[in-house]
Design a protein around this nucleic acid. Structure first.
Lengths: 184, 184
DNA sequence: ACCATTACGCTACTGCGAGTAGCGCAATTA
DNA sequence: TAATTGCGCTACTCGCAGTAGCGTAATGGT
């Protein structure tokens, strides 16, 4: 999300990302996605709203970056393929179940429906790295990996959207069983 | 969505649902979910905006009702369980792929994230009838059927949200293969 | 020391869409 | 004929995303 040309002269940017990300997640957790307005996030971070817009082009982009920072890389460990897939699914399920994170994810995702530039960010900056990592680990063709990601993430988000709550562990395990019959 | 007490006196409601639903789907198809404002839908239907709000409590509720009308019941036919599941999945995939319908569905779904009353409508009026129908046809326990619905619908919507396009037939078939290993 | 340059905070705005209020009129039933 | 309810219309309120412009702080270059 940083500018293409990092400037050499002038006042350097202060270290605000950590503060802003923390305030963003806290706001979404307490107020929901729609309730976490840019004004509130700015206030919660002790920062001017205009500063947010100097760094991120939109609310969706800010929250996407925030999630990217909060999630980090997928762990792809396990004795065999099945365990690799299962542990990766448990990891993303846990990330989405973290308070605030699920609502934030679903919110960004929904904004992306009406904002192609945000969809670009989401698919290129978010999905793509995970797809490459999984593909390297599993050696599946890319369309299969994309389907795998659609199934896992889509299922978790759909449950979240319908019930307002993250998916229970038992259902996560049922989904893993199902996926493993194909990708295990 | 109609009032709990259909009144006996006074001017009866005119037959506007078909006109409004058609105008709604057309607006979403041409302008996207966010672009299809209540003002535009009203104008396109040749109806006052206040009339829309007399019948539906929110934009999301209107579009949910519109989709309910456009989708109709799931066909649950087929020689064996596998064919029943496969044809049902192809049916919902086709419905979501219809121009406008996918964007409308995804839009309502995203509004529901921040609107519990809309979530209620979506899960009770939309998901529940389909769940019951599938459950009767397959004889699976309800949590399994709910998972099946989450997987199928979630996957289709996730693909739609990430790419802006409905899922290609080949991928739908791949998803069917995968699901049938568990539910076939 | 002194620019030029860039960042930050602040106040004040624009634009737009969801949802509402109240009026006059139309179409029913009792 | 009176009461009641629906419709169209105009005109709002409210809230949020995003923007403009100013004064000031912090840096590098000369």
């Amino acid at each position: 999300m940083q500018a293409t040309t990092p400037p050499t002269a002038g006042r350097p940017r202060s270290d605000l990302n950590a503060t802003v990300f923390a305030a963003t997640l806290r706001s979404v957790r307490e107020l929901g996605y729609a309730g976490a307005t840019m004004d509130r996030i700015a206030t919660a971070a002790g920062v001017a709203k205009t500063t947010l817009y100097r760094r991120w082009p939109s609310k969706g982009a800010l929250i996407a970056d925030c999630l990217l920072d909060a999630f980090g890389p997928v762990p792809l460990t396990g004795a065999d393929r099945g365990e690799v897939v299962a542990s990766a699914i448990r990891w993303i399920a846990a990330k989405i179940s973290a308070p605030g994170a699920g609502a934030a994810f679903a919110g960004v995702f929904s904004d992306a429906i009406n904002d192609p530039s945000l969809r670009e960010i989401l698919s290129k900056r978010f999905q793509e790295p995970y797809r490459v990592a999984v593909q390297d680990a599993l050696g599946e063709p890319d369309d299969r990996v994309l389907l795998l990601i659609d199934v896992v993430t889509g299922t978790l988000l759909h449950r979240m959207g319908m019930t307002g709550e993250p998916m229970a562990d038992a259902d996560v395990e049922a989904m893993i069983d199902m996926v493993l019959r194909t990708f295990g």
